[in-house]
Design a protein around this nucleic acid. Structure first.
Lengths: 235, 235
DNA sequence: CAAACCAATCTGGTTAACCAATTTGGTCAA
DNA sequence: TTGACCAAATTGGTTAACCAGATTGGTTTG
């Protein structure tokens, strides 16, 4: 068979079309929660794509909890109901790549919460991790070096101390995108300033004092520059 | 070669150990951003695991933006710096499966924001989608049928109207988990009540009126039961 | 007649073979 | 000496073959 190399975008389109076909199939066959999907081989033949493509599409739907696979048995529709499944598939198909504004907006939302939770729930261990992350950041800034990474690790340490694994995961997901865009748009320049040190120390102190309100307040100040960028830029 | 069938947990452990080994390798070899990783074949031999396992681990690190693969060329370390990379890998290794409390906490946080953004940014199209989701929900409740799915789709429609693709994605990620747990712990019983209809209509009206403050307020009321469950239960 | 049993078949998961684009090291001509 | 050029090796991606467990339909046995 002719093998062709696809770009990432083409690959995504193929996957999206498979998901759409799966949705149609489920609708057409009136498959209900718990029902078994046709085998991967059959689907690959029916849709005219490779089994790998089918598997990847199924894995994506498994990630969103819509399907689940049992080894040596089959792939099944999760117990979330036909209506919800159909609607969710539609949403997944309509998902766009997040733009920078969405990322920043989400980061601010998450961090104003994680810092509050961290102040409430931090253990002494968390405090040590935060302290060392803060020190690493300070050293870099005082040496006038680029400190974006250390800045970021401090914020991730806060997410970890929040004891909320969902938010922690989401922070990890958006973080690299944020870094890339920061470097692209040179948003981070202000973070190299000495002002950042004081803000970070204020946040750390509030978490140490277990003062959630002040922690959130200090984080808000820390984000004020970002806020402006997010809501007054044309990007 | 002997083929063995692994459980999901065993598979996860293998992947985690590969990620840890990759971290050690990068540390040991002092690989920097932009550097090329050894080839998949070499790594699979070095670590004593199959190439598939290596590929999956690499794909996970690609998902978090730590690595990137160029076809017919190699896998490279992303431009996020050694320190950030090492720290993020550590965080990824330490990630736990989200507990129900984390999920609910995150959902509330997200939805109080998306409903506000939806009120600010909704188009007439969004309004139509919201209206039809609301109608589907009302019909189900009035027929005394289970309406968890329709409830959920209404909330997803709000996320979509918020025009923030990150939050929309995150809502889609946590939604199935939430449903599953709702059914397990029977949290949703209250949603079948007629009270839910009024609350949903209030939220819808606030979005229609483009009144973000009221929209958030109404959502808060809608979540008050959930709030209690989240912060006063022992689970 | 029902239940236990068994072999053929089907399934998702895994491994191995293959493909084409890219690197790379060396060669040869200008 | 240098730069264009080429063929062989390397690489991630893709396809095909294979594996062991699960399912299933029919058969046998009590």
């Amino acid at each position: 068979m002719k093998v062709e190399v696809l770009t990432n975008n083409e690959k995504r389109d193929v996957q999206q079309s498979i998901i759409a076909k799966l949705r149609d199939l489920i609708e057409y066959k009136n498959l209900e929660p718990g029902d078994k999907l046709p085998s991967e081989r059959m689907l690959s033949e029916k849709f005219g794509v490779s089994r790998s493509n089918i598997r990847e599409a199924i894995q994506k739907l498994e990630f969103y909890g819509i399907l689940y696979s049992k080894p040596q048995s089959g792939t099944f529709i999760a117990e979330i109901g036909r209506v919800a499944m159909s609607g969710m598939m539609e949403d997944i198909l309509g998902l766009e790549e997040p733009d920078f504004k969405s990322l920043v907006e989400t980061r601010i939302l998450l961090e104003l919460k994680t810092v509050r939770l961290a102040a409430l729930r931090r253990t002494d261990e968390d405090l040590e991790a935060l302290q060392s992350a803060l020190n690493a950041y300070k050293n870099k800034v005082l040496n006038k070096e680029d400190a974006v990474e250390e800045d970021l690790l401090f914020h991730l340490a806060i997410a970890k101390a929040s004891k909320n694994s969902s938010m922690n995961t989401f922070m990890l997901i958006i973080t690299p995108e944020i870094i890339t865009n920061f470097e692209k748009y040179h948003v981070c320049d202000s973070n190299q300033s000495f002002k950042g040190i004081q803000e970070h120390e204020d946040i750390f102190q509030a978490i140490k004092d277990q003062n959630p309100k002040r922690a959130k307040e200090m984080m808000k100040i820390h984000f004020s520059v970002l806020y402006q960028y997010c809501y007054h830029s044309n990007n």
